[in-house]
Amino acid sequence: MLSSQQLLAASEEASGTDLILPATSELIGGLIAFTIVGLIVWRFALPQIQKALDDRQAAIVGKMQDAEQTKQEAEKLRADYQAQIAGAKSEAAKIVEEARHQAETMKADIVARAQDEAAAIADKAKADIDAQRASVISGMRNEVAGLSVDMAQKVVAGTVDRSAQQALVEQYLNELGGVNN
């Protein structure tokens, strides 16, 4: 520790000029020391830092290129997907169109067949009706013949004019025969 006596003694024996004028040994030592520092900085530190900066720049550039590439790939993938989706859509539309077409042709077929069938049924019905009518007409004709014979008998029984009777019967028979033919 310092005492004030020591301090006083020290300040008396060494002049202040000594403090402000550097000692030769220190100048030399300082020069050597600073030269070493300069060499370290110049030869080691700055190149290393430059290297670090270059590395960083390269890394950043590389990363950005990677990102760019990835982006392009994604873009391409997206375009592909879109094309596929568009293809699928048009295909679906085509399928629907085809199905509709098919349905329409089927419908037309069915309608035509139904119409044919209906026509056939109607024809058959008409033929049946015709046949029935014919049989009814012939039946009725027989009945009318019987009836007219009966009527004629009654009429004959009532009147006595022979010749007139004869002519009437003749005519009737002729007429009947004409109808029967």
């Binding site: 202040g16 000029t17 000594d18 403090l19 402000i20």
Partner: peptide
Amino acid sequence: FVLFFIAGG
């Protein structure tokens, strides 16, 4: 400051 050292010593 310098003069202090030079003159004060």
